[in-house]
Design a protein around this nucleic acid. Structure first.
Length: 500
RNA sequence: GGGCCCAUAGCUCAGCUAGGUAGAGCAUCUGGCUUUUAACCAGAGGGUCAGGGGUUCGAAUCCCCUUGGGCCCGCCA
């Protein structure tokens, strides 16, 4: 049974899947796993005929924790302020929206369409007020739960609410000393004294209390999260206890997911520099492929992402499945997997990715590629084809291993041919010079003839030709390849090589 | 110190959530195609399922231990 289906099959009643993020910087592939795991579970519920919804929380009231490497030093004055109160590194948006907006656009192309909720708005609307009050009134009970389950000692003056200083705007420097009615009174290290209304966004709950509060406020029944939250005594454990003992709300079904590693480079951490921003992934990975990557393995397994040849193999695997589906050769799980990976766009008919990585190295203009493909009798959705060509180009430029790359050699760069090789090239030159039309078929015919005339084996003959043009033993389909070059250049290169 | 995950063919992995003859793709080799979408078709070789113990008529699969690898927590979220 497909993992998503078996995960949700025993659930009863209305379901609400929730995931979220603290938009403190560029959102990367690891964050993508979080939201896609949520989406896959959500869609598995729908496929199982359950009444389900899917929300995504943007924790824009979380404070900026430090000046990240991608920020100018001037941001040190903003450390400790809610992300939604800080200006974006560029433009006029807030910091949180600046990083959230491109991410939301990215996930839409992957057919991920959760209800997006900004946690800061929930505070501003007063949604946390009642629960905050409960936490404050039952402070000692809450403290005991946190201490006994997490095993850590909370400070003597620990308080279940972090006010935002009305003067300096920081959410981590105001120390509460009193509470009455709906106000938390504080003194801030900046010298300011004031009070926060807990029914507004003048402060927030600490994470370990905020999480269970969200479950209850929003009615969450299922939540995937990274293993950092799932450790024993971690925030899920304390959240579950708080939710059940203090808030009288059953904790959502948890699903821990493993990390995504960059092949050979380790974990995708913003700090280690090996992470690839989510938006850049989509520059070369087709959206359905990103879904497929996350959907094909259960969340408990780590994913080793290899953007080089591993990625190409994965594309092959996916395209093979699509082909087999057309022939009705898939089992139930494979069909579910494809349905889950599907983005709703009809692009089964796109030429395979591997082929495109060759074409984009021969032709510099998209129209040439489209013309060649059409000439072979194929008609594709121009929009999706154009997008796929762009992705293939990006891959070749940035990720292709040497074995998948080629470049055309200069007319008079040195050649090293034996007697047989020279024979093939000289024959080819003669055949090509006598061609009346410059098209792929004729060129290919000329090559075939030249090889025959030289009485070498076809594979040997072709490899001589590739060596002359790209310095390798193999290459893209010869006729199309040479047709894409200027005839004059081809002839010059051949005559140079023949005479060399 | 605590927790989670992983270990199956040369490589990448499936099979474990129903315990019942060991699987796929890639790579290699053989044969076919007057050779090209960096192919295709037919076939072959290749395994002590990390090691040990247990449960069972029967274990890659369930339980325990060991080894090796990876990650997370013990700041904040």
């Amino acid at each position: 049974m497909y993992w998503g289906i078996s995960l949700v099959r025993d659930l009863e009643g209305k379901q609400k899947v929730s995931t979220g993020i603290s938009p403190s910087g560029p959102i990367h592939l690891g964050n993508l796993r979080e939201i896609l795991t949520g989406d896959i579970i959500y869609k598995s519920m729908l496929l199982s005929g359950k009444d389900a919804s899917f929300i995504y929380l943007c924790d824009d009231i979380d404070p900026l924790r430090k000046v990240y490497p991608f920020l100018p030093q001037s941001y040190s004055e903003h450390v400790g302020k809610p992300l939604r109160d800080i200006p974006a590194p560029e433009g006029t948006d807030t910091y949180s929206e600046y990083f959230l907006a491109p991410f939301l656009k990215s996930i839409e192309t992957m057919d991920v369409r959760p209800e997006v909720i900004r946690t800061g708005n929930l505070y501003a609307e007063g949604k946390f007020g009642d629960i905050t009050k409960i936490f404050i009134e039952r402070k000692e009970e809450v403290r005991n739960i946190l201490q006994s389950i997490s095993g850590r000692d909370l400070e003597e003056n620990w308080f279940p609410y972090n006010p935002r200083c009305s003067s300096c705007g920081r959410i981590n420097s105001a120390v509460p000393y009193d509470f009455s009615d709906r106000y938390v009174y504080y003194r801030c290290s900046c010298g300011n004294e004031g009070r926060s209304d807990i029914y507004t966004d003048q402060g927030k709950l600490p994470w370990r209390l905020e999480w269970p509060a969200k479950w209850k406020i929003l009615g969450v029944t299922f939540e995937p999260f990274g293993k950092d939250h799932g450790t024993q005594g971690g925030s899920y454990d304390t959240g579950k206890a708080i939710s059940e003992k203090i808030l009288d709300y059953p904790a959502p079904r948890p699903q821990m997911f493993e990390r995504i590693l960059r092949k050979g480079k380790g974990a995708m951490h913003s700090s280690t520099g090996v992470n690839i921003p989510a938006t850049e992934i989509l520059d070369f990975v087709p959206p359905e492929m990103v879904r497929y990557m996350m959907a094909r393995v259960p969340p408990s397994r780590h994913i080793e992402f290899d953007p080089e040849s591993g990625f190409l193999n994965l594309m092959d695997e996916y395209e093979r499945l699509i082909k087999l589906r057309g022939e009705n050769k898939l089992d139930e799980d494979q069909i579910t997997l494809l349905n889950i990976s599907f983005t709703g766009r009809k692009n089964d008919e796109i030429p395979d990715y591997r082929h495109l990585t060759t074409l984009v190295q021969i032709y510099s203009r998209d129209e040439q590629i489209e013309k060649i493909l059409e000439k072979n009798g194929n008609k594709y959705d121009p929009h999706i084809l154009h997008e796929r060509i762009k992705q293939a180009r990006h891959w070749v430029m940035n990720y292709a291993p040497e074995s998948s790359r080629f470049h055309i050699l200069d007319e008079n760069s040195p050649v090293n041919l034996n007697e047989d090789g020279k024979k093939v090239i000289c024959n080819l030159m003669a055949n090509i010079k006598s061609l009346e039309t410059w098209n792929a078929e004729a060129i290919h015919e000329a090559a075939r003839k030249a090889i025959q005339q030289s009485s070498v084996s076809p594979s040997e003959g072709f490899s001589y030709i590739y060596r002359v043009f790209i310095g390798k033993d193999r290459g893209p389909r010869l006729g199309f390849f040479l047709e894409g070059m200027e005839r004059d250049k081809v002839e010059k290169r051949l005559s140079f090589s023949c005479g060399a």
